[in-house]
């Protein structure tokens, strides 16, 4: 009686029509803009000179790939994604291990740690940029001055690292949000047994907790990658991609081409490149998450 297979197959007609709206909408969402991006990317098309669009073939790609802004932006994108990923996973694991311990107020601590994830990105970025990292009036500047150092010029000297700091603060809570429950779902008997066998905290982590965390960690990494590849708001309100191109990532470069330069063709070619980059990442994620659905249907 249990399980879903017992239901009469005649109902499939109805159930398909229940599924159809979602599938259709997502299908349109996926196919139409994608086809348009591909099409525009092969066109000479600038909104400032309307009516002059013409087939350009590989011109936009050649133009993009042969100039350094694209390569700088690609490098910045990969740097941001990679570094923030490492920071959030490391700190996320560390904080989760800490919050998994039994100490007074741990539930309140958990709430405080995850709070930054719920703050809208424009607010996070502005709070950090102004009240904390401003080289004259910011709190950090006051601290470094009090310690006898000069203020750190966060956004003019180390723009990318400053963004890593902000985004890392926003997303470490996400890692905790996923990894802490995963850690708590570990069978306590298994942990106790390992303790009785004389495993210290490091052995316990290495042989019991870490293997248990690997899959949730992969999930965190993949989901973060999706978001970090399109990182935009934090750059938009802090550095505006500068100084120069120092903090321009692929998302910001496309935005600049599209909505500041109105060059539809070039922006679309950049879009295609971003999609290709994301797909390489996606292939990996599908493998990891797909495993969860084995044995279904």
């Amino acid at each position: 009686m249990s399980g879903t297979a017992a239901i009469r197959p005649t109902r499939h007609l109805h159930t398909k029509s229940l599924l159809a709206p979602s599938v259709a909408l997502l299908f349109v969402w996926m196919v139409v803009p994608l086809a348009m991006t591909l099409w525009f990317s092969a066109e000479r098309y600038n909104l400032l000179s309307p009516g002059k669009s013409a087939f350009a073939g590989w011109e936009n790609y050649r133009d993009l790939l042969s100039h350094w802004p694209l390569w700088v932006a690609m490098g910045n994108t990969l740097f941001l994604v990679g570094l923030v990923l490492i920071v959030t996973l490391l700190l996320g694991t560390l904080f989760s291990l800490l919050l998994d311990q039994d100490f007074p107020g741990r539930n309140i601590c958990r709430l405080l740690v995850i709070a930054p994830f719920f703050v809208m990105p424009t607010v996070s970025a502005l709070i950090w940029k102004n009240m904390l990292m401003n080289p004259v009036f910011g709190l950090f500047a006051w601290i470094t001055r009090s310690l006898g150092f000069g203020p750190i010029e966060f956004f003019s000297h180390t723009p990318l690292l400053s963004i890593v700091l902000i985004v890392g603060w926003e997303w470490t809570p996400f890692a905790v949000l996923i990894l802490l429950p995963a850690l708590q779902s570990l069978n306590p008997e298994q942990v106790d047994a390992a303790r009785l066998d004389g495993a210290g905290p490091i052995a316990l982590f290495r042989h019991i907790q870490l293997p248990h965390l690997l899959r949730p960690m992969a999930v965190v990494a993949m989901i973060e990658m999706i978001f970090f590849l399109s990182l935009f708001a934090e750059i938009y309100v802090t550095t505006g991609g500068g100084p120069g191109l120092a903090s321009t990532n692929l998302a910001y470069l496309i935005f600049r081409d599209a909505l500041l330069g109105w060059d539809v063709g070039r922006a679309s070619a950049g879009g295609v490149i971003a999609i290709v980059l994301a797909n390489i990442v996606a292939l990996f994620l599908m493998r990891v998450v797909g495993r969860d659905l084995e044995g279904l249907g």
């Binding site: 348009m36 496309i254 935005f255 797909n279």
Partner: peptide, 11 residues
């Protein structure tokens, strides 16, 4: 969800 939003900003 893997489709980066910047990729479809223009269309």
């Amino acid at each position: 969800k893997m489709l980066p939003v910047v990729g479809v900003l223009v269309p």
